[in-house]
């Protein structure tokens, strides 16, 4: 009762990074609220997974293991998660803002009749006073998220409904192991009694998930290109530079929409959020939709021939120039200097 739930996503029976990020944040919130952190894993052949979770400071792992539950499908997972929430009455339930979490979260919130805040980038515990009723609330979950295309940051609360539910964006919370010896307990859920036959309305014909080839959230150096890079071929130059530095190639939405590179490289509000130690923004104008996903980078170098491009304001080093002149020079000097 009154604990914190984290729904753990699986891909090929591996716990997704987003879930480990949520558990790390959940641990801090649980310490703050002096309650337990509880993980929920729903899938098949997952009995080995709890030991991966305990080091993140998980006190309880609820496991629903049944072949009808893998791969993820909306209604069966909703039924199991809702039933558990009703029994255990957590005060907070967190889900990743991924294609799975954004499919499940709203379904669960509507079934329970509780509020859900989408795509949060920060969670904080704090008090709230309803200005209309004058009622005061202690220790609510502040669900902080960009809205209106990233031009505003809103703090949302769910004063009266429980659990307080939120989906959280990938890559914004840090993964942190509490202790490799942290011990929690495992509770198995009796799945058969919960699933109705008509819960299985969807048949999965095919599922092709590429193993995570691009690892933007883990990259220390990111070389990102925008619409100004101009072509797929020019992105090869970015790739060459990124490989040389041991980094990854990223892109703005405009570059992805123009087909210069794949969706999996998109950084920004509709893509991944990153915080590398060095970020190159090349031919990127610096619209808030993009910068919302990279402005926490430790150092930013912008390369843009437009001296008024907003990205330059964000940069530690703003290079006013043509990238196809600048990058080859950088490659050359890097090779010379790093010898």
């Amino acid at each position: 009762m009154e604990n914190i739930f984290v729904y753990c996503e699986l891909e090929n029976n591996v716990i997704s990074d987003i879930s480990l990020e949520l558990l790390s944040k959940g641990r801090k919130l649980a310490d703050n609220l002096e309650c337990k952190l509880e993980a929920v894993i729903i899938g098949h052949n997952i009995l080995e997974l709890p030991k991966v979770l305990f080091p993140y400071g998980v006190d309880t792992v609820y496991i629903a293991d049944n072949k009808k539950l893998s791969p993820y499908s909306t209604i069966p997972h909703t039924s199991i998660f809702v039933d558990l929430i009703k029994k255990e009455q957590p005060q907070i339930a967190l889900v990743g803002a991924t294609s799975i979490g954004r499919d499940l979260g709203p379904r669960v919130s509507a079934r329970l009749g509780v509020g859900l805040t989408a795509d949060c980038t920060e969670l904080v515990i704090g008090d709230y006073k309803d200005n209309k009723t004058g009622k005061e609330y202690k220790d609510l979950l502040y669900q902080i998220r960009p809205a209106f295309g990233g031009n505003i940051i809103a703090t949302i609360v769910n004063p009266d409904t429980r659990p307080q539910m939120a989906t959280i964006r990938e890559g914004v919370m840090k993964k942190e192991i509490v202790s490799s010896t942290y011990e929690g307990k495992i509770i198995n859920i009796d799945v058969e009694s919960l699933l109705k036959d008509d819960d299985i309305v969807l048949e999965i014909i095919e599922r092709e998930i590429e193993p995570r080839k691009v690892n933007l959230s883990g990259a220390q150096i990111i070389v990102s290109g925008g619409f100004g890079v101009g072509s797929k071929e020019n992105f090869d130059l970015l790739k060459e530079f990124a490989d040389l530095l041991g980094g990854e190639v990223g892109a703005s939405r405009a570059a992805v929409d123009s087909g210069y590179t794949g969706h999996d490289r998109q950084i920004g509000q509709t893509g991944v959020t990153v915080r590398p130690k060095l970020y190159f923004a090349i031919g990127i104008s610096g619209a808030i939709q993009h910068t919302a996903g990279m402005d926490k980078s430790a150092q930013i170098i912008s390369i843009n021939s437009d001296p008024d491009a907003p990205i330059h304001k964000l940069a530690d080093y703003a290079i006013i120039g043509e990238f196809n002149e600048v990058i080859p020079k950088m490659i050359k000097f890097y090779k010379d200097e790093s010898k």
């Binding site: 509780v114 304001k313 940069a315 530690d316 080093y317 703003a318 006013i320």
Partner: peptide, 21 residues
């Protein structure tokens, strides 16, 4: 059930950036 507690506008702040050619 969700209430907006407060809203902040995002303001582009200039960093102390070095301009290069």
């Amino acid at each position: 059930p969700t209430k907006v507690k407060n809203i902040e506008n995002v303001v582009f702040k200039s960093k102390d950036s070095k301009r290069l050619t």
